[in-house]
């Protein structure tokens, strides 16, 4: 079933999920069942630092599309190598490109990000960059060939939702490729707002994996994504400064 397309590829859902923060690989099945995600992200790490938990086998058995990320990379060089390794290990040329500027803010490094995006597109990758909520940078990323842009709602792991909804709207207005709200989702209303603002999808990781009941939060986010998208296209009423009665004023008793 097709919910959306990225780079001409059908994806089955507009909620994308990340596996970061999972306390147990055994939760993956119920989370995926509840989220019915468009795709699922993983990181790429040294085997010596990886538990033999069989995450990859489990995701493959579930039949979900796997999107490797370059999380933690601090330079274009590191991110490009990580993407190349991911392509080799996971047999996909899609990459969620992350190049952060430091390990405290985890904010994207715009200069390195654009550089890495350009290099990877040239090498045949389908690049989905994690970016600041900046319409100018988003346009530059699309100009070098990115297939989508993934602006952050608030810093990674904060669960604050959308710090600056107008910036997300501006990114939406600036590009024609899919916009995927990434980072900062805390709960269902954040996901609904992102979709109401015109995002095409929402990516949530720790909002789900660190919730007390991960599968329940996955179900809530999925419903919120659907609700937000429906509302976006329902044509909402304008915000008014003054009241406007909904019941007729004519025919009131005693007038």
């Amino acid at each position: 079933m097709r919910a959306m397309q990225v780079a001409g590829v059908d994806l089955p859902g507009r909620l994308w999920i990340g596996t970061g923060g999972l306390t147990s690989t055994s939760l993956v099945g119920e989370i995926v069942e509840a989220a019915r995600p468009g795709l699922v992200t993983v990181s790429v790490r040294r085997t010596s630092d990886t538990e033999r938990g069989g995450l990859l086998d489990m995701l493959r058995a579930l039949g979900v599309r796997i999107l490797p990320n370059t999380a933690g990379c601090l330079s274009a060089r590191e991110a490009v190598l990580t993407a190349q390794l991911a392509r080799e290990a996971l047999e996909t040329d899609w990459v969620k490109l992350e190049v952060i500027g430091d390990e405290t803010s985890l904010m994207p490094d715009a200069v390195e990000l654009l550089d890495a995006a350009e290099t990877l597109v040239r090498q045949g990758f389908t690049v989905l960059p994690y970016t600041s909520a900046d319409p100018v940078l988003a346009r530059r990323l699309v100009d070098v060939g990115c297939a989508a842009v993934m602006p952050l709602g608030s810093p990674i792991g904060t669960g604050r939702g959308l710090d600056d909804p107008r910036a997300i709207e501006a990114v939406r207005a600036a590009v024609a490729v899919p916009v995927v709200l990434d980072a900062g989702i805390g709960t269902a209303s954040d996901a609904a707002l992102a979709m109401e603002l015109g995002c095409d999808a929402v990516l949530a990781a720790t909002a789900i994996t660190r919730a007390d009941r991960p599968a329940q939060m996955a179900a809530a986010l999925r419903a919120a994504v659907d609700a937000g998208r429906l509302a976006r296209h329902a044509g909402r009423i304008p915000r008014l400064t003054t009241a406007r009665a909904s019941s007729p004023m004519a025919g009131r008793v005693g007038t």
């Binding site: 596996t19 970061g20 993983v42 790429v44 990886t50 990859l56 990320n69 390794l85």
Partner: peptide, 10 residues
């Protein structure tokens, strides 16, 4: 030599 595989990640 770097040998890598998929791990959980957001």
């Amino acid at each position: 030599v770097e040998i890598v595989t998929a791990q959980q990640g957001g």
